[in-house]
Each structure stands twice: as structure tokens, then as C-alpha cells.
């Protein structure tokens, strides 16, 4: 019965995300004043982003996280760190590298309840539907290359520092916990909303995932998050 209720909850969240995305699609399709005919082969621009990967947490943080699961199938997260983002467009025209700090808070619904885990919990897996909200600062370093014909290729470098942004992520995926220490969050499906709060010369993208990006602020993608907890001391 609980599992059926959980599935209904997941269905509700997925449906809600679809509605929100549908409502937002009109905004992101508004014409830019300098809009241009598309010369890409696909409506999406592929990009690659890796979120530097391992978080080591103290035993206290580990206990805090698990004991905050006071509601069944629910967890609250506080996260922060650095991100490294490289963006390439389909034509190999430009690349932008972003380094930044972020901090956020989130809530996830899980199909398994790990409340007060016992020693038997050597390997756990759970479906996760999670939502995260965060803010941060990003530094951008970009190289934009224009191919030459009779003159050499022309490269324009751009740097922008301490650009404030906020983001929201809706993730659907799987959580794996091995021996209560190594924690994988794998998100085959991830929607990201971001907004630059500082005015930037370039329309930077920040998407903590691997996947494709449109010119709007809602982006699907793939993501993986790895957490290694400090090992519990043996008595």
C-alpha cells in the first residue's frame, strides 16, 4: 500500500514538472533581438559538464543526514562545493569553462526508508525523485574561435568573474549506498533551471549534468553525484 502511495507521489511530481516545463516553454522561446537562423543540425546543443566528484563528509554529517529522515521516504540535503563546466556547441565553434562555488538545499523522495540504518544495510538501492535549489558564484573563461579563410583562425578570449546565479534541479534517478559509506546518486533524467543574477557579457550556461542544452533555461541532462562518508570507527 505504501509503495502504491509512493508511486502516486512520483507520478504527481513528474506530471507537475511536465506542466511547469510546458508553462515555461513559451518564455524561453521568446525571440531575442539579435536572433538568427539556426545553423545547427539539432535543436539541442550537446555539452559536457563534470561536477568534481567526491564529497567526503564527517561522521557527524552522515548521522545528521540519516536522522533527518524523520519522514518515511524523505530526506533533506544541504550541499555545496565547486563545479567545473565545459560547454561546446555542435559546430565546435566555442567552448566555455566555468568554475564556481555553490550551496543549496533540497528534498528527495525515496522508495526505500533508511531511517536509523542497521549494520545489515551493506547495500541499498532506491528510486529517488529529488528537487534541489541553490545559489552560487561562477567564474567563466571562454575561448571563441572564428575560422579563418586566408588569415589564421581568430580567437576571442573572455573572462568574467564572480557572476552570481541560482539554480533549481529536478532529478529522477537511483540512489545506491554501499556499506553506509559510499553513496552514489545517478540521475538518468534531470531538468535544470538556472538564472544568472549578475549581468554577463556572454549568455553563460550552468547545468550540473551531462547532456544536451537548449537556448532556454530549462535543460534536460544526465547527472551523477558521488559521496563518500567518513568510515565509521570500529569499536
Amino acid at each position: 500500500m505504501t509503495f502504491i502511495l509512493y508511486l502516486r507521489t512520483v507520478r504527481f511530481i513528474v506530471s507537475l514538472s511536465i506542466v511547469l516545463l510546458a508553462l515555461s516553454s513559451g518564455a524561453q522561446n521568446s525571440s531575442a533581438p539579435d536572433s538568427t537562423a539556426k545553423d545547427t543540425l539539432l535543436p539541442y546543443t550537446p555539452y559536457f559538464m563534470h561536477q568534481a566528484g567526491v564529497h567526503v563528509r564527517s561522521r557527524y554529517a552522515y548521522l545528521l543526514e540519516y536522522n533527518l529522515r524523520f519522514l518515511p521516504h524523505t530526506e533533506f540535503k544541504v550541499s555545496g562545493g565547486t563545479a567545473d563546466h565545459t560547454h561546446y556547441n555542435l559546430m565546435g565553434f566555442s567552448s566555455t569553462k566555468s568554475l564556481g562555488r555553490y550551496a543549496g538545499i533540497g528534498i528527495s523522495l525515496l522508495s526505500r526508508n533508511y531511517f536509523k540504518p542497521t549494520k545489515d544495510y551493506r547495500f541499498q538501492k532506491s528510486i529517488v525523485v529529488g528537487f534541489n535549489y541553490g545559489r552560487g558564484n561562477l567564474n567563466f573563461l571562454g575561448d571563441h574561435k572564428l575560422s579563418g579563410n586566408v588569415f589564421p583562425d581568430f580567437t576571442i578570449e573572455s573572462t568574467e568573474e564572480n557572476m552570481r546565479y541560482r539554480y533549481s534541479e529536478l532529478r529522477i534517478g537511483v540512489e545506491l549506498i554501499i556499506d553506509r559509506v559510499i553513496h552514489f546518486d545517478i540521475y538518468p533524467l534531470q531538468f535544470t533551471y538556472y538564472k544568472m543574477l549578475s549581468e554577463t557579457y556572454w549568455p553563460h550556461q550552468y547545468i550540473p549534468a551531462i547532456g544536451v542544452v537548449r537556448n532556454g533555461v530549462y535543460n534536460p541532462g544526465l547527472g551523477m553525484h558521488i559521496i563518500i562518508n567518513q568510515s565509521k570507527k570500529r569499536k
Binding site: 516553454s25 538568427t36 537562423a37 539539432l42 535543436p43 575560422s147 537548449r214 534536460p220
Partner: peptide, 27 residues
Amino acid sequence: LGIVFLFISVLGCSDPDTMVCEGFNQE
């Protein structure tokens, strides 16, 4: 999941294809 991916595809088809941007994307 199928519905979501279908929706993503529909979003991709709704891109504006309009004016020409002035300037040169090469030399």
C-alpha cells in the same frame, strides 16, 4: 519516462527560426 522524453522532443521543435543575425561567424 517516455512521456517526458517526448515532451523534450516537442520543446526542441518549438525553436524560433527567424531572422538573420548580422555579422560574420567566420573571417
